[in-house]
Simulated assay, not measured.
Amino acid sequence: MKFLSSELAAHLAGGATTLCNCWKLTRGDGRVMGFTDHDGDLAFGGVTYEAAAGFTASAIESSAGLAVDNLDLAGALDSERLDEGDLAAGIYDDASVEIWRVNWQAPEQRVLMRKGNLGQVSRGATGFTAELRGLAHRLNQPVGRLFQYGCDADLGDERCGVALASVEMRGEGVVLSIEENRIVTASGLGAFDEGWFERGRLVFTSGGNTGAGCEVKLHSLTVDGAVIELWQAMAREIAPGDAFAVTAGCDKQFVTCRAKFGNETNFRGFPHMPGNDYVISYASSGDVNDGGSRN
């Protein structure tokens, strides 16, 4: 149910209205941005809503129950504050969005129409389309632990305990050459074994991609230096001389946790859990049936 001020209710009842839509977007880093489909900038609540940003939205529909209400938000990449590289880098992922219906002649007359978070974002040559998910989408997220062979902790987090900042787990390199904006040959990583950084994360510390990162797909060694292949191309061009930091990777398996990190006591999976093959197995005269350990 929407609650309208008496002034806004009287304006709507008057027949001729001066209404527009405003979008308030709050990124994960705390930066707040405002946009409106009105032909002039508006300001309220301490936020300036930029006009002529090319924003349009599909019809707002709400349903009863716990079904997730979605709508699409489309925009042109013509705002000085909207950057294609930031969109590609994931800076706007899961950003909080508020949609307001505002009387542009008197912005204090407004009503909050929808609140949610940005979902899937698709980009084109000159614009983008973003899915806006209603608050109920949080109920679709898994809560609690899963019983599985693999570890469900993130390498280096509190449950894992591996110190990723240590010199054994973290390397710093400089780009020597680039292919397809995702495969780099770099110096500074010669002390690490081949494959050490696979499934790890590389974050650029200088250049056009400063602060942006990507998961490492492959890590190999050549006579020219270490070759790091990322899972996807970076949003901005990588250039020779760009510096980066890269951390070790983990495949979430118990043997890797024990052999690579010596951290088996903090392994957060269930490597000894019987699988389907064990459930349907049967005793055989050729097997060792002494009830001993399955390891």
Rank of each mutant, 00 (worst) to 15 (best):
S187G: 15
A212Q: 04
G156M: 11
A125Y: 13
L230F: 02
F192N: 04
D251Q: 10
R123A: 03
G275A: 08
K115D: 09
R27F: 14
V32R: 05
E194N: 08
A64N: 09
A16L: 12
A88M: 08
E215T: 13
K260F: 04
L146A: 11
T185C: 15
G90P: 02
D251T: 06
G156P: 03
L218T: 15
F204V: 01
A248V: 05
Q105G: 14
R236C: 05
A59N: 00
T17Q: 07
G75R: 04
E7L: 12
G85I: 04
L164M: 14
L146C: 09
N266A: 15
G150R: 04
Q109G: 02
N209M: 07
N21K: 10
Y149R: 11
A191M: 13
E50L: 12
A88Q: 10
I183V: 15
G292F: 03
F270T: 08
I178C: 12
G45W: 04
G173H: 00
S206Y: 05
L12F: 10
L112K: 12
N140E: 13
L73W: 02
R138G: 11
H11E: 08
F55H: 00
F261K: 01
G195L: 02
A153D: 03
G190N: 13
A64C: 05
A283Y: 01
A163F: 14
G195T: 03
C22F: 06
R123Y: 01
A130Y: 01
A243Q: 14
R170A: 10
L221P: 01
A9C: 10
L77H: 03
A259P: 01
M1W: 14
F55S: 02
G213W: 02
E264R: 10
G249S: 07
D93I: 03
G286F: 11
I91Q: 12
H11D: 07
A283M: 05
R101K: 09
A59S: 02
A64S: 10
E108I: 14
R201F: 15
